[in-house]
Structure formats: structure tokens, C-alpha cells
Design a protein around this nucleic acid. Structure first.
Length: 279
DNA sequence: ATCGCAGCCTGTACGC
DNA sequence: TGCGTACAGGCTGCGA
């Protein structure tokens, strides 16, 4: 699933492909509900002829400011992939959006689950304002994180997935960060010591940065799994310690990894390293 | 404030 | 082999 590191890889790939500076010649929406805002017709009309000025990332969002001041936004959700292909490439059955660019190229949005969404808005803050801090930003401090964490009374895992609390962490990196910090996913946020809060802060940043360093996490071989722009796979799956490793030994102590459902989410942890004390 | 659930989707994994 | 069913999950919206 594309989380912060995966979206970062896509954004870097799009920049390397020269998407910043490209002009959108034609717009083809083949699955109407993919366009969240405005109507598909207005989306196509207002996008046509526009130049993409930059390709940026905010949490799991791809943010593309246009020359006319509007902003194109994309969210890959579960299975969204962006591809750059030669114009007039035959459509794959899971490609639901096409942006014909200059220089004989076309951007295609591929999404088997159809959960991904695109927006065209005058002011991106109306969409992005609700998001919490960017966890790998320099200005994101351990003090601020620890203080906000202690002010809440929830289980750790669901709070890490709450995009208004912290923006960009998803199921994979939440499991990995909690293992790294040696904290039980169901531990209550207001029971952590100062040392544990700092440990979690560093663990989150470490697993996200490692995800980027290894090109993102591509679990499995299927069509719906994460792929970078030119269909490349990430390599971070080989670095995962607990996520999707139920029954396999913990790399730290050898205990079998267990799976729980926490806040309606599949959750993987080491019952030995991640203790439930204080809960 | 926090929680749980339905809904959005379809590929995959499973049982028979 | 083939069928049916359950499940996965990011996010929103709802009610408790």
C-alpha cells in the first residue's frame, strides 16, 4: 500500500521523468468516480492546456501546482499506480485516467481497486489542511510529538494511523515503528514514559527514512501491489521485521510474530519484545 | 474525545 | 476444476 515512502518514490520518479514543466494536452476520464472534485467534465476542461509547474508530496498526497494557479492532487489509496507511457499505448483494463502530455507521452492512472482519487482545486489547503505534521520534516520535533501523544487517550496503533495526528504513516510502517520502539500496538498513548515517547518518535522517522532509502515496500507480486512509475518494485519488503510476517521469528528474540486486529486493522507484533505493561 | 461499523472496490485465498 | 464466500485496507461519514 502506498504510504509516505512509496508516494515519495513516485514523486521522485515523476520529477525524473520530467512531469514538472509538462503540458497537459488531453484528459481522458474512464471511471468517473475517480475524480473527487470537480465534475469529471469540469476536471477535463480546466486541466486541458495547463502546464504542471512542480510535483510535490504532502503526506500520502501527490501535489501538482499548475501554471494557472490551480492545483492537481492525487491520492493512490490502496492500489493506485501512476505510469508514464508513450501516447496511444493500448489501455490496460485497470487504467482509469489518462493525461496526454507533450513529447508523445501520456500519464496513466492504474488502480484495480478504484479507491484512488484525483482533485483539481483552486486552493489545495481546503483538502490538505486537516493533515497532521509531516513526520520526516526537520521542524517535526520529539518534544511536540511527545506532548501531543500524551494529550490523547487512545491505543497507539490507531493514533499512528490517524492522518490528522500524524500524516503519512500507514499500516506497514505503523507496525514496523512500534516494533522498532518496542511498544505494544494496544498500549494507551497516555501511559508512555518520556523515554518511550522519544523512542517512538525516532522509530517512526527511522522506518520511514529506511523505506525511502530502499525504494518503498512492494509486498507480493500481484497487480495491486506497490510499483514505482516505470513498474519498478521497491526493496524495503526485505527489511520488514513484523509486518505480514505472522508465525515467523522476531529478528530480535526469535519469538513467533503474532497477528491481532486493532482498530479494524491487521496488526503484527512480537509478543516478547513489545510488552503490554502499563496498559 | 473516542470507538465501531458500513461503504467504497476487486484480486486473492480459502473451503467444499 | 470450479464455484461461492470472506477478507484485505485508506479514508469518509455516521451513530453510539
Amino acid at each position: 500500500m502506498p504510504e509516505l515512502p512509496e508516494v515519495e518514490m513516485v514523486v521522485r520518479d515523476l520529477r525524473a521523468a520530467g512531469l514538472a514543466g509538462a503540458v497537459i494536452r488531453e484528459v481522458s476520464v474512464r471511471w468517473a468516480r475517480l475524480v473527487a472534485q470537480p465534475s469529471p467534465a469540469a476536471f477535463a476542461r480546466r486541466l486541458r492546456g495547463q502546464r504542471i509547474q512542480a510535483v510535490q508530496r504532502r503526506a500520502k498526497w501527490i501535489v501538482m501546482p499548475l501554471k494557472n494557479g490551480e492545483t492537481l492532487l492525487a491520492h493512490l489509496r490502496m492500489t493506485g499506480q501512476i505510469r508514464i507511457v508513450p501516447s496511444r499505448t493500448p489501455w490496460d483494463r485497470h487504467e482509469h485516467l489518462g493525461l496526454t502530455l507533450d513529447h508523445g507521452r501520456e500519464l496513466r492512472f492504474h488502480d484495480p481497486r478504484k479507491f484512488g482519487r484525483w482533485w483539481l482545486v483552486r486552493d489545495p489547503s481546503e483538502i490538505l489542511d486537516h493533515l497532521g505534521p509531516e513526520p520526516i520534516a526537520a521542524r517535526f520535533s520529539a518534544e511536540d510529538f511527545g506532548q501531543r501523544l500524551g494529550a490523547r487517550r487512545r491505543q497507539l496503533k490507531p493514533l499512528l494511523l490517524d492522518q490528522t495526528f500524524l500524516a503519512g504513516v500507514g499500516n506497514i510502517y505503523a507496525d514496523e515503528a512500534l516494533w522498532e520502539a518496542r511498544l505494544h500496538p494496544q498500549r494507551r498513548t497516555d501511559t508512555l514514559s518520556a523515554v518511550e515517547r522519544t523512542r517512538l518518535y525516532h522509530a517512526i522517522r527511522r522506518v520511514l527514512r529506511q523505506g525511502i532509502r530502499f525504494g518503498g515496500t512492494s509486498l507480493g507480486e500481484g497487480d495491486g501491489n506497490f510499483r514505482r512509475v516505470h513498474h519498478r518494485r521497491g526493496r524495503n519488503q526485505s527489511r520488514l521485521k513484523v509486518h505480514q510476517r505472522e508465525g515467523q521469528p522476531c529478528p530480535c528474540c526469535g519469538t513467533k510474530i503474532r497477528r491481532l486486529t486493532v482498530g479494524q486493522r491487521g496488526t503484527h507484533f512480537c509478543p516478547c519484545c513489545q510488552t503490554h505493561s502499563n496498559q
